[in-house]
Nucleic acid binder design. Structure first.
Lengths: 141, 141
DNA sequence: TATAAACCTGACCAAAATAGTCAAGTATCA
DNA sequence: TGATACTTGACTATTTTGGTCAGGTTTATA
């Protein structure tokens, strides 16, 4: 059970960006250098973040990205969702109420995996980008 | 972020086995049929479970596997550990207190991933095989 | 004591997911 | 008009996953 680097990078990049929020657009190049993430890869990630209206782009020289909403309103859930980082504990379709893997009964542990998913998603629902920036500032004091 | 089927299968198989605990050894063939998991794959999984002393094998005809400890004492953590299903949220080495990815400072989100890992492991630490069997019996009433 | 059931082991392999790179743009500011 | 920075889509190498396969060994029981 591991987190993919796409999800991790997305959060890292957004925390980096959020620290300059309201001051000026932050270029991917800067984020790339500071966070050690390839520029090309960041572009892929930010394309998704923009489509989900988490960030806004500013083109041209001195351009970059800015947050599209208040950092308090951006939860980890939103970020992971944008970059297709999904919490997946079962193979079987979520919506098929009855039956797992073509069987007539739910698999013995189906409930367990549902619980696990909920447990993890709770964590993601609670944490906002703002929380992360603040925690970070505190650590530096 | 997904659970691998090795981990999922291990838990499914052990719940199946635990239901017959104390009665007689359960053959992998039976588990394979009931749970729809390939016999060869189950053998791989049980080899690991045996090495970690979660199950005991009984060879020969009428043989199979039995739990090696009380179902209450077997936590999900132990099972996942045995089959190398690890919760991994960071790439950087856990033990390097200072520095992430060769940098002099911790990455901005290092704390976050540690928290997430703890959050998930809490879930695994609490659930025992016995809990799962009981939940399953209740559901069938 | 033969034989079949069941465990045991290690090698092997295909498909999917991951983690990017690369190329060729377009927009905008100075 | 050039440099900076966003935009897009195709491509690809590597790793992980999810197994299969072949060849054992052990032991109950008929």
């Amino acid at each position: 059970m591991r987190l993919t680097s796409k999800g991790r990078y997305a959060v890292m990049a957004l925390v980096d960006l959020a620290r300059f929020d309201g001051i000026n657009p932050v270029s991917l190049r800067d984020i790339s250098l500071r966070q050690g993430i390839s520029l090309d890869y960041l572009e892929q990630i930010f394309s998704k973040l923009r489509k989900k209206e988490i960030v806004q782009s500013v083109r041209g020289t001195q351009g970059g990205y800015i947050l599209n909403r208040n950092a308090k309103e951006i939860k980890l859930t939103n970020i992971f969702d944008a970059v297709d980082e999904k919490v997946k504990t079962v193979q079987c379709k979520k919506d098929s109420k009855k039956g797992c893997n073509g069987k007539s009964t739910k698999c013995l542990t189906h409930n367990l995996w549902d619980e696990l998913e909920t447990h993890i998603n709770n964590f993601f629902d609670k944490k906002s980008l703002d929380d992360l920036v603040k925690e970070n500032l505190e650590r530096r004091l």
